[in-house]
Design a protein around this nucleic acid. Structure first.
Ligand SMILES: [Mn+2]
Ligand SMILES: [Mn+2]
Ligand SMILES: [Zn+2]
Ligand SMILES: [Zn+2]
Lengths: 136, 136
DNA sequence: TCTTGACTTGGACGAAGTCCATCGTAGGAT
DNA sequence: ATCCTACGATGGACTTCGTCCAAGTCAAGA
């Protein structure tokens, strides 16, 4: 994330205060915020920013590959700025906390040919579930 | 699934025509329907069945462990009656088709101790993504 | 400084899901 | 076979999450 603004400028993005503040909110490790959480934190710095702009900006960052959308079971999407470092997720079943994790092994290779149904398998998303120390 | 109705009766469920038709709709292999798809198919057999009842029944089946909710990225939840046979999913990025798959290996064991952040990891959910033969 | 098209905004709209007061009925009791 | 009633079904209002749009604003190049 650290040079996200620079990369975006390089891609010809018009730099606005709204886009800057959204990018700032997404900075850090283990960041997996919902759109509304991003809006809340962005509005703390830039009170007039609209929900529509937050959604627009997040959508553009996803298309550019700078942010990942994380699957959920029925809840609001989470946005993950750690897109340059392939990783998986560990989610607390109690409080919902999300941590980035890096399993060893080759999950794609573990899917036997006869289980691929002719698909061209390109990626795998893994979610570990359990209780965090605080919730245990 | 085949004896779902019997198991539900054994758990003291009141058997209604609505619950029966929802259970029937969920019968089969590689079934991963949204609530609205379940409602549509159920209504073909029992036209008066309401959306609320479909949601209620699916929710109860999930609590009983007879049906699993499958994660999605921003789309409607999918309900999976194949809960007695642990498995993972292969999803077509083109058309959204979902297949049940059984990878080899031990995904939970592949998560190193120092990557567990003190969590008690209990389960793992894996989604393979790729293009199906029809979409390739 | 001027111009202009890209960006932002608020509100309407839509899809997915929940809630609730009321009505109906499965299944045990008689 | 009939009665009772607690559990289940219903539909419509409501909430949450997200998209769309017409109108206004402004970043940045000329
Ligand atoms: Mn992450
Ligand atoms: Mn399945
Ligand atoms: Zn926790
Ligand atoms: Zn396909």
């Amino acid at each position: 994330m650290s040079d996200l603004l620079g990369r975006l400028r390089g891609r010809g993005w018009r730099m606005t205060s709204q886009r800057r503040v959204v990018a700032e909110v997404l900075d850090g490790d283990h960041v997996h915020l919902t759109a509304d959480e991003v809006h809340l934190r962005a509005a703390a710095r830039l009170p007039e920013i609209s929900r529509a702009t937050v959604y627009n900006t997040l959508g553009e960052l996803v298309v550019l590959g700078e942010v990942l959308e994380v699957s959920t079971v029925g809840r609001a999407k989470r946005y993950d700025p750690n897109a340059r470092n392939p990783h998986q997720h560990l989610v607390c079943s109690g409080c919902g906390t999300v941590r980035d994790v890096h399993p060893v092994g080759d999950a794609i290779g573990d899917l036997p040919e006869e289980e691929r149904f002719g698909f061209a398998v390109g990626s795998v998303e893994i979610t570990y579930r359990g209780l965090c120390p605080g919730c245990a």
